Amino acid sequence: MAGPEFAEALKALDATLSSVEAVVDLDALRTEYADLEQQAAAPDLWDDQERAQKVTSRMSVVQAEIKRMEQVRRRVDDLGVLWEMAEEADDADTRAEAETELANLQREIGELEVRTLLNGEYDARDALVTIRSEAGGVDAADFAEMLFRMYLRWAERHGYATEVYDTSYAEEAGIKSATFVVHAPYAYGTLSVEQGTHRLVRISPFDNQGRRQTSFAGVEVVPVTDTTDHVEIPEDQIRVDVFRASGPGGQGVNTTDSAVRLTHIPTGIVVSCQNERSQLQNKARAMEVLQAKLLEVRRREEQAKINALKDDSSGSWGNQMRSYVVHPYQMVKDLRTEHEVGNPQAVFNGEIDDFIEAGIRWRRSGATS
């Protein structure tokens, strides 16, 4: 890369970071952190454990955000110095190091820029993800498990903690459904663009005639409820069923009826949890999931009213949204953004950041158009 070209790229990078810093408002974050520190230092903080956990959790998030922004700014400033050193010494190795750092910063600042687009009411929350097999029989169940593994690997790549609440295995292969939580700042805002119907086209490994099969799986993403949320659920509106948990191949089968299934009678929403050790723990987890799903129902009803007022005729983007083709060619394509790649295996290994970023930008452009 020539000197003027590098200088121009660095200038553009600095301008993008400055706009991100303006949106994030570091001064406001530092003020908030100082206030949280004062609250955390109060001797009676842990008298209210719920409030204490909220304060310490928010402190951790704000501190991480400040640290990340400050580190990126420092790296951008240092990169200019590094390039000057490379030019003065005419050092090819140092130039290569600077170019690599430029590419890394472009990617990281791009992620920060996308984060600034996540300003919805619930975007900053953890995400509760449910994957279900749909049309396609055993291939669909296998596909659902592939998506389940894809999202867990994506979270692992980013160092995000996950917690599996429930996995319902299919008889022959794959899963009927799985529900899990991604614990990360802006997990809901980030993963919400993954919601919809996913389609897989491949030669079925379960067809002894080697025929091509199209199968479908659905992804639902809702925000995890917070202590400030209030969704009233009268006891007479819930049916509670208990059953024995099961695992693949007969492994991990409980000897007691510890798994819990809750049915919300007015809406027909059914949730279950079987991954905790006791029936009480599973019921508590299932109630969390039900609360989250009812909160999402309420959010969608409110959004529908807003869309009606706006005369929004664009339709929902949450139906069929991505195709994964393994045969007769290799391609994964997002049907909303037109973003596509030619390596399905990498995508199934959790490399979905480009799809997520394109989805967030696409949704934002639709909201502002």
Rank of each mutant, 00 (worst) to 15 (best):
R364Y: 13
Q38S: 14
K67F: 00
T130E: 13
A304P: 00
Q320E: 15
G159V: 06
D90A: 11
E21T: 10
E5N: 03
G366D: 07
Q320C: 01
G350A: 06
A86W: 07
E357V: 05
G342R: 13
E301T: 14
R212G: 09
V326M: 15
G136D: 13
T100H: 10
N319M: 08
H198I: 00
R30K: 15
E235A: 13
E220A: 09
V242N: 13
N307A: 15
N349T: 08
A12N: 12
Q106V: 07
N275S: 12
T227Q: 10
T100Y: 06
A155I: 07
N319F: 07
V242S: 14
R115D: 15
V297Q: 11
V224N: 08
R300N: 12
G136A: 11
I352L: 00
A245T: 01
P185Q: 04
D229G: 03
K293Q: 13
G136W: 09
E357G: 00
G174V: 04
G210S: 14
L17A: 12
V260H: 07
G189C: 12
P328M: 04
E113F: 05
I356R: 02
G196I: 03
Y151A: 02
T31R: 13
R75H: 11
L45V: 12
G159N: 08
V326S: 09
S246R: 02
E357K: 14
D226H: 12
D257M: 03
V347L: 07
E101G: 00
P4R: 09
S365M: 11
R107W: 06
L262H: 12
Q345C: 03
E220N: 01
D236A: 08
L262Q: 12
A22E: 15
A155P: 01
T225S: 15
V270Y: 00
R212A: 08
S272C: 06
V72K: 01
D166P: 04
T31P: 00
E351T: 02
D93S: 06
G247Y: 03
W362K: 09
S60K: 15
A184K: 09
I109C: 11
D27R: 12
R244N: 01
T256R: 00
L294A: 10
L147C: 05
A92Y: 01
L290V: 11
A367Y: 08
